[in-house]
């Protein structure tokens, strides 16, 4: 897989570090809403198809990039610096409604 770093040019995926799903809005730092934090930290949609995700060019300019990658074909539809591509305020509609584990608050 090649990622076209906007600063360094196209580079092998070995130079990059996956830094996670880019479709999860981080709760306000002061928020104590554990459900919101739980979603942010643990819940992922894992779509089969186009996926927005963060990659750091850790073996190059060290910028974090917002990459739109098709998880089925590894085709990359877009690459931008995260700093110039603002974090989504609201999360895009997930492919299927996610079920929250009912027992999360119960003690195991």
């Amino acid at each position: 897989m090649l990622i076209a770093c906007p600063y360094c040019g196209p580079r092998d995926v070995a130079e990059f570090t996956y830094q996670g799903d880019a479709n999860r809005p981080r709760p306000d730092p002061a928020s104590t809403d554990l459900d919101a934090w739980n979603d942010y930290v643990y819940q992922r949609a894992n779509p089969a198809g186009p996926h927005r995700e963060y990659w750091q060019h850790s073996g190059g300019c060290r910028s974090h990039l917002l990459v739109t990658r098709n998880t089925l074909t590894h085709e990359i539809a877009g690459v931008a610096f995260v700093r110039s591509a603002p974090v989504p305020a609201t999360k895009p509609a997930p492919a299927a409604p996610r079920k929250r584990p009912a027992s999360r608050k119960a003690k195991p």
Binding site: T17, Y54, Q56, R62, S63, H64, F81, V82, R83, V87
Partner: peptide, 13 residues
Amino acid sequence: MQHLEYFLDVVWP
């Protein structure tokens, strides 16, 4: 280092 860079680039640009 990577953790700090992530927060500066992604969360608190």
